[in-house]
Write a protein that binds this DNA or RNA. Structure first.
Lengths: 363, 363
DNA sequence: CTGAAAGCGCTTACAG
DNA sequence: CTGAAAGCGCTTACAG
């Protein structure tokens, strides 16, 4: 770089000694060498819904020559022509991508996504332009860069999925649900997970159990809340309204919410938190109130995110198979894109109770 | 999806009630509405090195109309025309992407890359097809999908960077060096890092210090080894040849290598390991030999990868600013791509000694 | 100052 | 069975 300008056009070939560059070989090059038209080559190289029929001898000769010349179709031309890009655009909830990739939930799902695209020889693109509203971003998603969209943690009230759907852009929703056309979705079984958590606490003898919610814009927050109330009802326990408190992904808010719980005249002896992050904030709140976990307070989280804090803290939690969710979802989306008959539109994954040291029998 | 086929072409608009899809607006649409030619619109919308000149009044009118119509240029068409895709392809060393993204070094660098592309409103693409040889993958990198390449942890002997360079494809090398044209690179100062590690051990009074290497195909393994020997020489210490042992990222190999060290007639009292992962294997080997760290053996790693194992183990190590390396490198590549005058081709980052509990004074 | 045209590489309907 | 042509949306030389 220090030795010459960057642009290809600004510099003649002679001025750079090391130039063994060759122009990429095009369909026309292959056609010329094979002595056939480009249509024939195109037809041979694609499984071909083209009307152009080619004899077996021509077919094999073209194939041979294309391989010999290391022909590689130009992705831009194909995309422009309206063909598949074999690329999926990944959209991260409301957040900027740079924030999302530091989130352990997203990160683990992401590993699954990569596994999924790799198996299918697809590609993934992350757009540097945050999408904000669906309306504003729609065109960016139809400009020939991607065949479909993977949406992780999109807020319930967002019009993104609906807009994509009505524009016939296939979408995978991770961590949510939708019965719209062109939408496939994967999620953990939130009801089953919340039931595991509540049953665990109930079996430990807790009756004063609180629910520390996650962000209200997440569907999972509501599903887990509903199960929380349902399980209490089933156990014949009447929990005060004050036991169902809003959480947040913002540390201050979550810690304050948990703090309020612990200052109630009759504080809970156990907290079911809507996710691990919030559960850890609850632990912090307990600590600052000089309460000992699990002696004075049992805490259960959700997710079992593979980060050191969770393991270090000894948090009992509900594990989601996050990487599997990402991988299976991605494969479902690709199957839909490829028109695989009978490919599922929805998969729900079983959670698992992971007992560590943040829960103990009620005193 | 359950209600209808996926493909746009297979289904008439009438059969789907919810279709509020509109064809993306093209340059021509804007031109028609503005009553000018497409060339004029193109010229206005791009800072325009085009020869087409447009009056100020036309310019502002076109701008207004384009915004009104939410015109979004088609990326595929631009790419085909030879323009910038504003997309960077990320290539992960020898590994499959799915393996690489589970690696904590790669993961942290990745977070920086996303930050970098986001700031510049660029995009990143990960190709599902593993690249293996540069020769085989070259065309895939010139098919209109990306303007440049980010290569993480490419083996020393790989021809990838050289091939890209001679084909005038700008590359960012992360964790390596190169003075080829079209190549920019970022890395930690390996010499400084190894010096920090060795000085720490020497100051603790260790004289029997071994080097447990990383994979030999990594340049860093060699640079750290060289510094290891240099620092011993400077301290007037003659280390036996058997103290410089090959490591590997494969657990069995690394553990065995470390084990051999510990079984020497005169075993080392300290080990400088070429990276954290290998340092943890050394710890494991020590444990299986009933040696206590740091009482019987001090261990220093390299990277300070943000994973729970490193912190849980109390490993003393050399921290690299991995996210920063990724972010700064990405911005350097983009600057080169955009022809920013005087943008640097090389940046080296200072490491930092993180003392935890795996090192202690020699007895 | 502005418009019409060529062409990037591909695929698919259309003629022979 | 095969070839020539149109056109996807854009940018950039080229004519007016």
């Amino acid at each position: 770089m220090t030795k010459g300008p960057i642009s290809t056009t600004e510099q003649s070939d002679e001025s750079l000694g090391l130039d063994d560059r060759v122009k990429p070989v095009s369909l026309r090059d292959v056609a010329a060498r094979a002595g056939v038209g480009v249509a024939a080559v195109s037809s041979v190289l694609n499984a071909a819904r083209s009307t152009t029929r080619v004899s077996e001898s021509t077919r094999s000769r073209v194939l041979e020559i294309a391989r010999e010349m290391r022909y590689q179709p130009n992705a831009a031309a194909r995309a422009l022509r309206g063909g598949a890009t074999k690329t999926l655009a990944v959209l991260f909830g409301t957040e900027k991508a740079s924030v999302a990739v530091t989130n352990s939930y997203v990160n683990t799902v992401w590993q699954g996504i990569i596994l999924g695209v790799e198996e299918a020889r697809y590609n993934v693109i992350i757009l540097g332009e945050p999408w904000r509203s669906a309306d504003r971003s729609l065109s960016a998603l139809r400009d020939g860069r991607a065949d479909g969209v993977i949406a992780i943690g999109v807020p319930m009230e967002s019009d993104l999925v609906a807009t994509l759907s009505s524009n016939r852009i296939p979408v995978l929703v991770i961590g949510g649900d939708s019965d719209l056309d062109f939408v496939v979705s994967v999620d953990v079984d939130n009801k089953a997970g919340a039931t595991l958590a509540m049953t665990h606490l109930l079996e430990l003898g807790h009756t004063r159990i609180a629910y520390l919610a996650g962000p209200e814009y997440q569907a999972s927050t509501w599903e887990r809340r509903e199960t929380y109330h349902g399980e209490l009802r089933r156990a014949g326990i009447a929990a005060p309204d004050a036991y169902d408190v809003p959480g947040s992904n913002r540390p201050e808010d979550a810690i304050e919410s948990a703090g309020r719980l612990l200052e109630l005249p009759e504080p809970p002896t156990a907290i079911f938190a809507a996710n691990d992050k919030i559960a850890l904030y609850a632990m912090q709140a307990a600590r600052s109130k000089r309460l000992e976990v699990p002696r004075d307070l049992s805490i259960v989280g959700f997710d079992d995110r593979p980060v050191r804090e969770v393991e270090l803290s000894g948090l009992t939690t509900i594990r989601q198979p996050l990487a599997e969710i990402g991988a299976v979802g991605t494969k479902m989306l690709i199957a839909k894109l490829q028109g695989v008959a009978g490919s599922p539109s929805r998969r729900v994954f079983e959670p698992q109770l992971i007992v560590r040291t943040s829960t103990a029998a009620a005193i």
